[in-house]
């Protein structure tokens, strides 16, 4: 009975959110724009990357900013054969948790490794920034990480 069938329509939920970032995230994003990677020292002395106003485990205030990277180690990774439309790369890539040199926590980003045989846990990778003119102060200022030696 057509009268008692449900109608359908497409619905778009869209908003251009604009977020104030505060001093700590702001320092990291400013660093990215300048081609640097920044961490912050936690209460116990460990270096947290990306930096937050708080220690990710205890919630205590964090302290001084420190420079980290540009290289690091892949702690774990996942291979994406078919990237979703909004993801950073439009060709196959790996998501990875990367512990940057000098850091005690790992950062999530993509590794542009070419094929799944070219990445493994424990591999060293290094950052590939976008061209300076294209950097705006966001995570996307890092185009990708790449296997060390291939940059």
């Amino acid at each position: 009975m057509a009268e008692h069938e449900a109608l359908h329509a497409s619905h778009v939920l869209e908003y251009p959110y604009s977020r104030s970032v505060g001093p700590v995230i702001g320092a990291f994003l400013t660093g990215l724009r300048e081609g640097r990677l920044t961490g912050v020292r936690g209460a116990g002395g460990s270096v947290i990357v990306p930096p937050t106003e708080y220690d990710p485990t205890t919630g205590e205030d964090t302290g001084e900013l420190v420079e980290v990277g540009p290289g690091g180690v892949v702690e774990t990774w996942a291979w994406v054969e078919q990237p979703l439309p909004k993801q950073p790369l439009d060709h196959p890539f790996a998501w990875a948790l990367i512990r940057l040199d000098g850091a005690d926590t790992a950062l999530l980003h993509v590794v542009d490794a070419g094929d799944p045989g070219s990445i493994a846990t424990g591999d060293r990778v290094t950052v590939r920034f976008r061209p300076e003119a294209d950097r705006v102060g966001s995570m996307a200022d890092i185009e990708a990480f790449v296997p060390e030696g291939s940059a």
């Binding site: 069938e5 604009s18 970032v21």
Partner: peptide, 27 residues
Amino acid sequence: GPVTTLATPIRLDFDFTPGIAQSVFLR
């Protein structure tokens, strides 16, 4: 100056149905 704001546009696409009873009203 230092980065103080971050633009994060969000768009999600949905199928929407008002359900059977409201469809009677809408028809």
